[in-house]
Write a protein that binds this DNA or RNA. Structure first.
Lengths: 247, 247
DNA sequence: CCAAAAGTGTTTCGGCTACACCCATGG
DNA sequence: CCATGGGTGTAGCCGAAACACTTTTGG
């Protein structure tokens, strides 16, 4: 951060970036230097940029990914969410220059966005200058987080679960080709409940957003499952038009 | 407005206040002096107040109503939503003092809230200092609005329709006691489609949020319909817990 | 050949839809 | 007594849930 005068004061964006790996729902988090606590990837908003644009920039800076599903879900506007100690904690740990003290002492509100990204596509997530590392953490075992970031993640997860009743997920969250059981595992993980294998298949096929390939996932024990991929056009239509039934 | 130094810069809240009257969904709007355009009731956010609190204050100032359903639904963050002409329009029409010029020239984002209020409970909605009147306008026939306020209303209405799949409405939007056809008319108006009289009744009763009184609505021609009221405890549980089926 | 997972089919149940019919009220 | 809207019942359809059975793979 060089100059705060071009930034919209008191406003930040935070991104809850979901990934799926080893049957766990994970969130991309930054471990802050010195403080040890973890934080969501976030950023400030330039005075002459759309808020949505800045959220996309955050995602791109940490993962290199652009142009994917990124959805605003809530504004967190409690007056005490970053006070009284956040700025002094940053200063005391030498994470920010003292000339930015007043900037960080402002009352801040933050806009929450969530994204769904393919785990394997994020090879080396990049920490920001005040973080020592950027890693995927399982959503079920989060360490201590700064500010209200835990609450932001919970709200993002709740929103994702609700949206699942109207929209498919999987594209950008799974590899290009995947099996039906893998897709089901994703749904079960996000929804935090078991689904019937056969009914899941039928329902998912009824959406008509899948293309069956003639390849199979070999190498595992037992019968080799068929690989599918998304029909991207129809998938997009399903996102826009909305699905009827829920889970 | 006396002093902008206590306000969170570049941030406002706007409330889409829905009412229901004569089988029309209405929105409480302010007609701005001189300019003639209409605007949503809104306000700025004090540096030491929660954003939610300020939204409630806006509602209270215009309607006198407090402690009712008021839901944040979206942050509008386009960089050009209040520029380049909004501040100069206000100034040219003498609506603001020139000492506030720079305040209104800032880039503004706004948080949208929507509320459901009982039409009859708002006897004399109060205009703000820069408005000549405050009135209910039918959502289907909106005049010219300032900024992106039309888009904000559209988004609020879309959100309301979606929420209807998971939550009941009616409390705070209808009088204390109401008939089943009146409740149905509300649903049909919000959803913008006709529903089957008999199926509507069955479905609504299945939610178990209604209490049947032994009174009837007299005075109309034909059979006098039974009056119902909401079981407020169960209604609240339905809001929190969510209903399953949709419309 | 066996265990375990993938793939297919079938039955059942409940909710929603689309009706027919009776009841009450004002005119 | 009749037109009109309120109130009640019911048959049929469709989707979801529950479950049995076959197929395929590695070991």
């Amino acid at each position: 951060m060089r100059d705060t005068t071009t930034l919209q004061p008191g406003l930040s964006v935070d991104c809850v970036i979901f990934g799926f790996h080893e049957n766990e729902l994970k969130v991309l988090m930054l471990k802050m230097k010195k403080m040890g606590k973890w934080a969501l990837p976030g950023g400030f908003v330039d005075r002459d940029k759309d808020v949505d644009t800045e959220a996309n920039n955050v995602l791109k800076r940490r993962t290199g990914i652009e142009n994917i599903f990124l959805h605003q879900f809530h504004l967190f506007g409690k007056v005490d969410r970053n006070r009284p100690n956040h700025a002094s904690n940053l200063l005391d740990n030498g994470l920010i220059d003292s000339k930015f003290k007043s900037w960080f002492e402002q009352r801040f509100i933050t806009v929450g966005y969530y994204a769904l990204v393919e785990y394997a596509n994020v090879q080396a997530p990049k920490p920001d200058p005040i973080s020592e590392k950027c890693e995927w953490l399982p959503i079920t075992e989060l360490p201590e987080l700064i500010l209200d970031h835990r609450q932001i993640i919970v709200k993002a997860h709740e929103t994702l679960k609700k949206e699942l009743n109207h929209q498919p997920i999987g594209l950008n969250l799974l590899p290009e080709k995947f099996t039906m059981p893998e897709l089901q595992a994703l749904y079960e993980t996000v929804l935090e409940k078991k689904l019937d294998r056969r009914n899941f298949r039928r329902k998912m096929l009824s959406y008509e957003i899948l293309i069956q390939t003639n390849e199979r996932r070999l190498g595992g024990a037992h019968k080799a499952p068929t690989l599918y991929q998304f029909d991207k056009l129809k998938y997009k239509q399903a996102i826009d038009g909305g699905l009827k039934s829920g889970w």
